[in-house]
């Protein structure tokens, strides 16, 4: 039997297939406008490789979890990130998931979720904040990190994404170097994430979600938390892996 976990987030749809306790396949797609449509695309892609309702069970998670008609069950992304992270890291610690619209901190002990926190309505400290800023600066997320590495310290003080964007526009107007603005943008996200994590402190942290391959962000988070932050390329799929494990 295949266990298929589908994590439809606000910007990316992640799929992980587990067989015999091993992740044998992952798929990454843009969620796009319709969660339902991307769910159908995922089903077709798996079907093409012989993974079908006949030999697989499906669990959906993420904000689009209710739009996967063939899912046997739906589980929240918090539980799934907890399960997936325990599978990937196998240690006690706090999971940091920086998602497209939510940022979560999940405290894990012996594979169980002890406590979790999630950002409020506001998008500060989420992937959305970075997305808005990269668009404004005309760079990719990778380029933003590369620029920030060479930036001087400046502070973007607005917490609100909309106001922070105005702040960035005025910095651009003042001809502040892009490197410095990039530094300020990333520090803003890091600080907001760290303040959220104050409610789930730990001596070890694991980063999951779309930023897990960004070494610069990992380094800044680790510095601000004063604790090691580890990750793995598969951590982008932590939610999907957790969902697959929940099958």
């Amino acid at each position: 039997m295949y266990q298929v976990g589908i994590d439809i987030g606000s910007s990316a749809a992640k799929t992980a297939v587990i067989k015999d306790n091993e992740v044998i396949k992952t798929i990454l797609l843009d969620t796009g406008f319709s969660s339902r449509k991307v769910a159908d695309t995922i089903y077709a892609a798996l079907e093409a490789e012989g993974i079908t309702r006949e030999n697989a069970s499906y669990v959906a998670t993420g904000y689009g979890r209710i739009s996967v008609p063939y899912a046997d069950n739906v589980v929240t992304e918090i539980t799934c990130h907890g399960k997936g992270s325990h599978f990937l890291f196998g240690e006690n610690g706090t999971v940091i998931d920086i998602g497209g619209q939510d940022t979560k901190g999940i405290s894990l002990k012996n594979g169980r979720i002890m406590k979790f926190v999630m950002n409020d309505k506001c998008s500060a400290g989420t992937g959305k904040f970075l997305e808005v800023m990269t668009n404004r600066l005309g760079v990719t997320p990778e380029e933003l990190s590369a620029l920030a590495q060479n930036g001087n310290e400046i502070t973007i003080s607005s917490m609100c994404t909309v106001f922070a964007e105005s702040e960035v526009i005025s910095l651009i107007g003042k001809e502040t170097p892009r490197e410095d603005i990039a530094f300020g943008v990333i520090e803003s996200v890091v600080n907001k994430v760290v303040s959220l994590l104050a409610q789930v402190p730990n001596d070890k942290y694991f980063l999951t979600g779309g930023l897990c391959e960004d070494n610069y962000i990992i380094e800044r988070l680790s510095k601000a938390l004063n604790a090691p932050v580890t990750t793995t390329p598969l951590a982008r799929y932590a939610g999907a892996i957790g969902a697959a494990l929940a099958c």
Partner: peptide, 23 residues
Amino acid sequence: LETDYSTTDSGQIETRLAAFIEM
């Protein structure tokens, strides 16, 4: 949970409540 009477945070509230109950 801190909330009001609007529906702006319904999605988030649902995720939090469901995750808490799963926990």
